[in-house]
């Protein structure tokens, strides 16, 4: 994998299933190198699009959750998805790493490109895709294992345990948790506070070297101090990763995101633009009403 693949959408993709049905296609070391290189690139030029949807529709049974979404997500930036509850933000997020595959009633139409490859093509392996697009959930969900084992989990299931100690340490450092837990790596992750657990979940996600991190209201279950730590962390993560974050907290979106997409009831993407533009001078009256709290 070369850094050029970041600039072209037509690059054949790594998450494609091969005949040997190997799902160990991802070289995590290569991925993180690429992320580093591309960060340097994106500092000097306009960000590339990592994820792009075209006419993305999602139905749960008869209910339509997303209605013809067209959205581009730029590399190494924080994209916030905001909107009233039930408008399909989580659904959109789960489409990106195909977690919606796990919901029997979900039906997805349209296209969703990750680096130019439609992830809903038949030859895409969702397991390999999820190793490149990590996810952090609304409620911290560490495994009932030790702190170390939580972070090592993703690498171990890939049998990728070379320099495991160093990589666990690095992930914990990147998640701003190392200093707090370095002396208790073998104790249970469940003994950590909620905010620490959530940063552990972030460390666990970045340990496998993803390119994109999806976060679904990652701070909504946390107190204000833990929340601000997570917010700081997200801004740092954007130097290495592309971050897509769902939040119902508009101040949070305004603080940490570069781009904001506003979903409104009915699963409609009403407006997407630079965060500053959305919050100061949105094109749509409905977005303005929503942001100023007139509804939703």
């Amino acid at each position: 994998m070369s850094s050029e693949s970041n600039t072209t959408k037509s690059e054949p993709t790594e998450e494609t299933t091969t005949d040997e049905s190997s799902d160990r296609l991802i070289d995590t070391a290569a991925v993180s190198t690429t992320a580093d290189e591309s960060r340097q690139q994106s500092n000097s030029m306009i960000a590339d699009t990592v994820i792009e949807t075209r006419n993305l529709d999602v139905h749960y049974g008869e209910t339509q959750a997303l209605d013809s979404i067209d959205l581009e997500i730029p590399e190494n930036q924080v994209t916030a998805l905001i909107g009233p509850s039930g408008c399909g933000k989580s659904t959109f997020l789960r489409c990106i790493n195909r977690m919606n595959d796990l919901v029997d009633s979900a039906r997805i139409d349209g296209e969703l490109f990750f680096r130019g490859k439609n992830v809903y093509d038949d030859d895409v392996d969702p397991v390999a895709l999820r190793r490149k697009i990590g996810m952090v959930f609304q409620h911290p969900n560490p495994f009932p294992k030790s702190i170390y084992d939580n972070v090592a989990y993703g690498l171990r299931i890939q049998d990728d345990t070379e320099n495991l100690d160093e990589r666990v340490e690095q992930a914990l450092k990147d998640a701003a948790l190392w200093d707090e837990v370095k002396d208790q790596l073998d104790s249970s992750a469940l003994d950590l506070s909620g905010g620490q657990q959530q940063r552990l979940c972030i460390a666990r996600a970045i340990a496998v070297g993803p390119e994109v991190i999806l976060m679904d209201e990652p701070a909504s279950a946390l107190d204000p101090i833990a929340t601000s730590k997570i917010e700081d962390l997200i801004e740092e993560l954007a130097e290495k990763y592309t971050v897509v974050i769902v939040t119902h907290n508009m101040q949070q979106a305004a603080r940490i995101s570069d781009q904001t997409a506003v979903f409104l009831t009915g699963g409609e993407l009403v407006e997407v633009d630079d965060t500053q533009k959305i919050f100061e001078n949105p094109d749509s009256q409905r977005v303005e009403d929503y942001i100023t709290g007139k509804f939703g």
């Binding site: 977690m99 959930f137 560490p142 495994f143 993703g154 299931i157 666990r204 996600a205 496998v208």
Partner: peptide, 13 residues
């Protein structure tokens, strides 16, 4: 299920 989701999200089969 949150634990299953965590695992699937990390690319587990």
């Amino acid at each position: 299920d949150s634990l299953r989701n965590a695992s699937y999200g990390l690319g587990a089969t």
